[in-house]
Amino acid sequence: MRRVGEAAFSKVEKINSELFSLTYGAIVTQLLKDYEEVDATNTQLEKMGYNIGVRLIDEFLAKAQVGNCGNFGETAEVIAKVGFKMFLGITAEVVGVSEKEFSLQLPENPLAEFVELPEQYGSLAYNNMLCGVLRGALEMVQMRVECSLTKDALWGDEVTEIRVVLKEMMEEEYVDDD
């Protein structure tokens, strides 16, 4: 999987991550100003991520040479080794895999380059947009999931970790509205 990820990353146009991380930081700052509190900001970040995920999935499917995933564990590996690599240039580790959930650990994180959370925003889920991206992208491939930030380097944890829980495999329905 790692090689697939590296191949995909080598084919895409790349930019220095600073532009990306600074823009992300400025967006978070603006949201905090607009909503004035952490929970609402967390929710908005996740929503924005969802909207991105819904588009991003097609670029992923088109550019990464991956077949259909047999089970949720495979999905996890593909996200960690190919998805994260292709878009963020990093490889995540998959931990705690079961039929219905897994966690992704990010050893380093371009979104939070040089970021420190001020005390009054200590509980901000700064990386919540990633949770939304995963939710949006997976929904487009028929998996309804719940994603949450369970550990964050910005909270003082060793790693940044996202837990993904499968709620439902969506069946394809044909609705004849005649």
Partner: peptide, 16 residues
């Protein structure tokens, strides 16, 4: 400061 991300990652962020 030498890390790279996909250009589309930024584009999607900008669109949103």
């Amino acid at each position: 400061g030498r890390h790279q991300v996909a250009e589309s990652t930024f584009s999607f962020l900008h669109m949103e």
